[in-house]
Design a protein around this nucleic acid. Structure first.
Lengths: 187, 187
DNA sequence: TTGATTTTTTGACAATTATCAAAGGAAATT
DNA sequence: AATTTCCTTTGATAATTGTCAAAAAATCAA
């Protein structure tokens, strides 16, 4: 749980009391590769912190597998739209490696937020950071070539290239795996 | 200011006290078409609420004009990355129509948030909603064809097609204006 | 209204990326 | 070690979209 609170401290300083209450809402999970955290067309009820391992968020678009997001150690994962809107979503979250996670239930998160102002501030900052990250990823997709996008990924997340199969990286970048394979052979 | 608090109430119920303090931090602006709200490579210090009018957020990529976001009545506008990270950004915000806006300074927003728990909750909800919107826009760009993206825009923001020049709509959708013109002639 | 400016459309051609099909490699399981 | 499964590469071809250039249409201002 140390890594969790170290990550939290990058967003906000929590009081001892708030830390205590927050930690009592966390559940530690040790799960195997391939485990499905969030099923298709389900409501995502948990926010996950990744202590060790790797998650992939993806969905099926006309039968094709589209990788939406990849999260590694010391970051958070959830099916954003579903978690926030409380509605089912097509996004599936799976583990790409055996992982150790901490989960918080949506209801606990909301009651922690209304009870503790500093926890509400933490989550505002966390969501704000998520928004910045998504905006940067959006910019990349908006008017950068496939090669540029691959190069951006290599600098921002160099380990993904080792840890994630090429086909998943490709759809994460918005291209087919054949195109990515050809781009790689040209570098 | 009525429209502002009506919009706020869709996210949170604020106490009379909080409303009072928030409204005293708002500044009403009446500005002409073409006015630049945020300059290139500047820090965006204000969050704007659009009472009347239309804003466009764009940037120059290799000399080309790329429309990033369009905001109309009863929504908010700011240069997201800059406003949150407090760093300069290439994004420019201009008015596409003569507009009436309410602005809040970043510093005021932060002090309001630390002073009033309910205002912090409002902004957490606002940022969460922004994240959901951006995720939906991202999905659209990720694996939908140019035609599909245009059709999505026509259903979600039908007025934009009337109010915004085609070239701006095109780059908002991630395509050239020639391609959009051809798509339109096929429908 | 008329000229100037901006916006939109059209055409010809090029570049990028996708699709379909198949072959090679790598990794895991028996 | 052999077999099955998954992952990656390569080739041929097609579809989509971009680029450059110019004309047509709409809008704005004097």
């Amino acid at each position: 749980m140390d890594k969790f609170f170290l990550t939290v401290s990058q967003f906000t300083d929590l009081s001892a009391d708030s830390k205590q209450e927050l930690s009592s809402c966390l559940e530690e999970l040790t799960l195997p590769k391939g485990h499905i955290l969030v099923k298709q067309d389900a409501v995502c009820n948990f926010l996950y912190f990744i202590d060790r391992g790797l998650t992939r968020t993806y969905y099926l678009k006309d039968g094709k597998d589209v990788t939406d997001w990849i999260s590694d150690e010391n970051s958070f994962a959830c099916s954003i739209i579903s978690f926030i809107t409380r509605k089912p979503d097509r996004r599936i979250i799976e583990l790409l490696e055996p992982s150790v996670l901490f989960s918080v239930h949506y209801n606990d998160l909301e009651s922690l937020c209304s009870k503790h102002h500093d926890i509400e501030n933490f989550f505002r900052n966390l969501v704000s950071f998520g928004l910045v990250q998504l905006q940067q990823k959006f910019d990349d997709l908006h008017f950068a070539s496939a090669l540029q996008r691959y190069q951006t990924l290599m600098t921002t997340h160099p380990t993904f290239i080792q840890r994630v199969p090429l086909g998943m990286i490709a759809s994460y970048l918005g291209i087919t795996q054949e195109t990515l394979s050809r781009i790689r052979s040209q570098i």
